[in-house]
């Protein structure tokens, strides 16, 4: 086994992905991914999940199909993605060009005591995504590749899947709003104006 470089810092990674976010619509998976996106700066075009484990990519898919001219990204953890792994097949079948799925992969269930996920035992989500027909680059391990990914999120030539190897450091939680109806209406107004 060759030595790998140090793993990426999750907060720095997410902040870089969203630094020049343009009109990107962001859906976050429960737990740390939600806190990371909140830490990068609240925005009406963020939809934070606090539960619904396994549903992040599916929710982003429905949004991407409804808004085909806007880039949509799901940012979630490896635990959530493993629970919703079937969604990668659904995305592969639908081929939404404007959808990206970004996994912050620390090989841990971070909210519950850092128990190892299946990734820690050798499962390869990037390989799964490729087999499902998503465009999936090699696992991302450095900030240059994160910068390249940040630009790709705005190109609508997907569906794109990116697995980012992050360290398992536990940050203080940055809690966004938990009021679901408010988040829902705020998001819809940001995307649709005052649509009924």
């Amino acid at each position: 086994m060759t030595d790998n470089p140090p793993l990426l810092d999750r907060r720095e990674t997410v902040a870089r992905l969203l630094r020049d976010r343009g009109d990107l619509l962001v859906v976050t998976g429960l737990g740390s991914a939600t806190y990371d996106v909140a830490a990068a700066g609240d925005d009406p075009r963020n939809f934070y999940l606090w539960g619904a484990m396994g549903g992040t990519a599916a929710l982003a898919l429905g949004l991407a199909l409804a808004q085909p001219n806007r880039p949509v990204v799901a940012i979630t953890g490896d635990g959530d993605m493993l629970m919703g792994m079937g969604t990668l097949a659904t995305i592969g079948a639908k081929q939404p060009a404007n959808l990206s799925v970004v996994v912050l992969d620390n090989e841990r269930y971070g909210e519950t005591g850092a128990q190892p996920t299946a990734i820690a035992h050798g499962v390869n989500l990037t390989g799964v995504a490729r087999a499902c027909g998503l465009d999936a680059p090699e696992d991302i391990r450095d900030m240059n590749a994160v910068g390249t990914l940040a630009e790709r999120l705005h190109r609508t030539d997907g569906p794109l899947f990116a697995n980012i190897k992050i360290d398992a450091r536990d940050y203080p939680r940055v809690l966004p709003a938990r009021d679901g109806p408010w988040l829902r209406s705020r998001f819809r107004e940001a995307v649709l104006g005052n649509a009924p």
Partner: peptide, 10 residues
């Protein structure tokens, strides 16, 4: 989840 996302997108 999918149809919730669909609704968020109109």
């Amino acid at each position: 989840a999918l149809l919730s996302g669909a609704w968020l997108g109109g």
